[in-house]
Design a protein around this nucleic acid. Structure first.
Lengths: 201, 201
DNA sequence: GGAATAATACCGACCGGTTGGTATGTTGTC
DNA sequence: GACAACATACCAACCGGTCGGTATTATTCC
């Protein structure tokens, strides 16, 4: 199939671009950079994408899917107890940034800072990533609270988790202190755990 | 005095650049943009700063000072009770982003995302802003805990406050939903309040 | 089956606008 | 007349995007 080859170069471009965007950002990564990182010519690039912006849009869409799949196949997803799934999900994200070779950067978070005022399409694509992740996390909280016969503002708690994770990554980029991610997220984990499990109200 | 005039154009450049960097970011704001926003010629620009990067460095230093002064002169700073000072500080930051014409962006946070891998000097300058703010906030927590005869991990709590604020601003940029700032920060406020006041340990 | 045709995938030189930065000149002040 | 504080014209590098052309595969028609 010719389509396979074409699909592979497209995938190579998206993968290379995602890596570069996460590291140096959307604006600092040039089209030529992306091409050479993907081992692809400039002609091939503009055959598959009609602009740098549309590549970034494809990257964000792919990023969103990838996170979703990663969460689905992670071990916590198959836990029987809803509370275990919730706590496992948080432990998963706390742990995933522990390995030194893991790029401590979220494509959506990095991108949206740079383009929120200038590229509305990308802003919406990045926001879609956030909404998608937040919605799934909210479901985990809702399931856990239902099982524990508790009621919490799961929407705001999910937003808090998202914001703190993005903030922790940003503070890491400034300080290069990897422990800040674990320390901050662990505190939110404990906050959510107590709200979901504690008796009262 | 000639020095006054010169100091004023320098100040105008820093102010205009700070505004632009907060809105569209360091990379997207061009030197010409900054000059016309400041109402200053390009020659004047490069008379006062020898590069765009050094302007950004000056902006970050000025930003750091400005935040410090703003906190010092805010009403919460003169509260008698250390706990009131701490809670007042958090209320201050929650409230300051409520007004619609307030730019919901931190210069240090916006800048560091774009340049953390490419401009080490700016990264350190942005980090200095974070460290400075976090240290002051930690002092507020320490004072409040001492008064309440409690002991908490004030370092991590201060880091959590910083990270969550930065994350909330970032999520706002994606969603344009201003309520996310108040909602997330309020939850951290309550977390810190309970840790500082609650009996136990 | 195979020639003819068409469409897809790709190449890389090139273009024009932009951008950070410079060179040169001018003005006011001590 | 020396020096700070500008102003203006200009430049070279860069960067997103185009263009003419080619190789490879798919489709049509006999």
């Amino acid at each position: 199939m010719a389509t396979e080859k074409a699909e592979s170069t497209r995938a190579k471009l998206i993968e290379a671009a995602t890596g570069l965007f996460r590291k140096v950002g959307f604006l600092a990564a040039t089209v030529d950079d992306v091409c050479s990182a993907a081992g692809v010519s400039k002609g091939a690039f503009f055959h598959h994408f009609d602009s740098k912006e549309s590549l970034a849009e494809a990257c964000l869409a792919h990023w969103c899917q990838m996170i979703h799949k990663m969460e689905s196949s992670a071990s916590f997803a198959s836990a029987a107890d809803p509370l275990d799934r919730l706590l496992g999900a948080m432990d998963f994200y706390i742990g995933v940034f522990e390995s030194p070779d893991m790029i401590k950067s979220c494509l959506a978070g990095t991108t949206v800072q740079e383009i929120s005022e200038t590229h509305p399409r990308l802003r919406e694509a990045a926001n879609a990533c956030f909404v998608s992740g937040q919605t799934r996390f909210k479901s985990l909280i809702d399931a856990a609270t239902a099982a524990n016969e508790r009621s919490v503002d799961s929407e705001s708690l999910a937003a808090l988790w998202l914001a703190t994770m993005q903030g922790a990554l940003l503070v890491y980029k400034a300080s290069r202190d990897a422990t800040v991610i674990r320390r901050t997220l662990s505190q939110i984990r404990e906050l959510i755990r107590s709200q979901v499990t504690k008796a009262g109200a």
